[in-house]
Amino acid sequence: MAIALPPRRPRLVRTASHAGVHMRFGSTLVFVLPALLLFGVLILYPMLAALSYSFFGWQGTSRDDFVGFGNYITLLTREPYASELWGGFSHNILLFVGAFIFQNSLGLGIATLLHKRKRSKRFFQTIFALPYLVSPMVIGYLWSLMLSPLFGPVNAILRGVGLEGLALPWLGDPTLAIWVVVFVTAWQWLGFPILLYGAAIAGIPEEISEAVSLDGASAFQRFRYVTLPLLTPSIGIITVLTFIGSMEAMAIPFALGGSSGSPAGATDVMMLLFYRTAFESGNPNSVGISSALATVLFIFILAISVGITRVIRRAERKLY
């Protein structure tokens, strides 16, 4: 008589509560360790080091006494840091708002139009994504050459077609220069939302659109009431990434306005202030103050990014 043996316990178990796979702690560690090591050495250690540096005074690169929040107080209250911090911060916000509008209007519009194209879709996606693949520093210098009032092709073309009045000193006028930085940043990033929105639109089941069409919805109504709500998660991700990118913007402002945000600080951003404080300052305590700035920047970006994520999640929950 055959005895029914209890089934052998499988090493991997699917559980009801989680859709994921349960593994033993040791096995988990083996898989996670390489990434954890890299993260620890390249990200976590420098972060914690910078945090600790910000609480000390410095003489060049040798650590001095513990100063508590002294560097933070200096940064937020003493000139030139206080006014430059707010000036740079306001330009970072402009960069974010500009890029956000550009990407969620033009980016989303192009992605929607490309979705309907079968043959040329890939070609145009590649064309739009090309600037995104080039180093921002190179993009910045190319635009700086193109916008030169003496030898740049932009003004030459404008003059050539009779638009003399529009041949402006793009990077010399403070009211224009910051918008040039906003435009170039948004232009470079445009390919990213096109790809992401393209993929998200392609993921929307055809049946839904067809069902709405049968109910007599126009193309705009289909976009407004079907496509757009279903894109909310993508809009959220793009918004958060745009926010982080805008707050950490450095290469394009540097290439277009130098480390001091020329002209007259009109294109200054927080990372340029960080760069100047850390590497161009005559202050022996530059390590302490720049570390404090990096910490403030990190906490601000993290807090706002988490905030944006929460808002988007709430919007998503309302949809379903």
Partner: peptide, 18 residues
Amino acid sequence: LVAGLSASALALAGCAPG
């Protein structure tokens, strides 16, 4: 993802002195 990307500003600072 948010935390990781945000960290780069601090990471940059931390690389400076030794």
